[in-house]
Design a binder for these strands. Structure first.
Lengths: 215, 215
DNA sequence: GTCTATATCGTGATAGAC
DNA sequence: GTCTATCACGATATAGAC
């Protein structure tokens, strides 16, 4: 199990600085990408924030695109993990979706992934775009799957379109960030989430009414 | 009515180039802000795209912030006008909201206003942010008002929260752009809109059921 | 691995001629 | 109003010493 490259150093050894600069660079790049986007994030700013020098940075990464890729992949990794664990909650379809919608989010700051989707350079690069596409695809597919389960189990009415509704839910989160930022207030974000859950609950009521009325 | 400054030259006179450069600068800035954001839009790029020279640009505008302000105000003016006319449609609350949701939009390109909300420099500047805040406020208030009308008229069930639902609807549009861009496909945007309208229709059905069942 | 020096280019603006 | 010249600075690296 001993490897020349240190992926996840099981026991941090004496030369514990190993990989430290690299991690600090990724962390700083993630912060800057989040707030300023790809275009607005300069190598010099990354160096300043991370405390890593010029030469050191270019030793670990070929340049800005490679650094950005590492940062984006880390973002997606974490966000996917959060989504996965929320979707894995016990309970009804509504409860599982509600668990995802109520994952802790910094509404005023926006989505670490969604932010980058606006960036033309990111979207134009297949490499940078792929992790983002994968993340959103994953979330939408999971949501659609949970909704389908809820339709089959009779939790929702039969006319609910799981794919379209999944797209709606994913959109509400991303759009909620926009409303929160522009109004400098997290309330619109929270209300949009609450209204979405309320819509699903009413679909459940409707399913209930339809079942008792028809059969 | 004769004025030394030409706001809206009623009859374009012989020196018809008057104000032409200014308009071309604004148009180019709008295009660039839309695709590349504030940080990514440089005066030199604006000059190149508009065909207006350096000196001319700085004659008409003090600098990049002033140009951006003019461009953003123009964006907001147009978007508000579209929203206003869509909301003014005849029909039920659902029909009026549907008219707004189905206004022509370039889903892959995103929202000219929402795009800028991501930009930290725009959000940090009260001047640049104000038109955007006003626009989103207007849309949300109008949506909430139409929803309230629908509740009063009995079109929707009594439990619908007009403000939260307005926030949800505005969020769906903004978030739909994100899904469309990241998947390079307008379908998620269109489905999110369709699902939203479907949700409102089901609320109307529920209102109907409640009225016939209770009274 | 990290540092400093150097290089090229773009950005954002000013000055002054025409 | 528009043009060209000029400028200080930052972005994005490369080179080579330590």
């Amino acid at each position: 199990m001993k490897s020349t490259v240190s992926d996840h150093p099981a026991k941090p050894d004496l030369n514990s600085k190993e990989g430290d600069s690299r991690e600090r660079l990724i962390a700083s790049t993630r912060e800057l990408l989040w707030s300023r986007g790809y275009i607005g994030t300069s190598p010099s700013a990354i160096q300043a924030r991370s405390g890593v020098g010029q030469g050191s940075m270019y030793h670990h990464f070929k340049g800005k695109p490679e650094l950005a890729l590492a940062a984006i992949e880390r973002n997606v990794e974490e966000l996917m993990h959060v989504a996965e664990s929320r979707f894995a909650s016990q309970g009804t379809a509504i409860e599982r979706i509600s668990a995802y919608l109520h994952a802790p989010r910094d509404a005023m700051r926006g989505c670490q992934a969604g932010r980058l989707v606006q960036d033309p350079d990111v979207i134009a690069s297949p490499e940078l775009r792929k992790p983002l596409t994968d993340l959103f695809e994953f979330v939408r597919v999971q949501l659609a799957h949970i909704l389908s389960t809820g339709i089959e189990s009779g939790e929702f009415d039969q006319n609910l379109d799981p794919i379209a509704t999944a797209d709606m839910i994913a959109s509400v989160i991303q759009g909620g960030y926009v409303l929160a930022r522009v109004s400098r207030d997290t309330a619109p974000f929270n209300r949009a989430i609450a209204a979405t859950i309320d819509m699903l609950k009413k679909r459940a009521e409707l399913g209930q009414l339809q079942r008792t009325a028809t059969f």
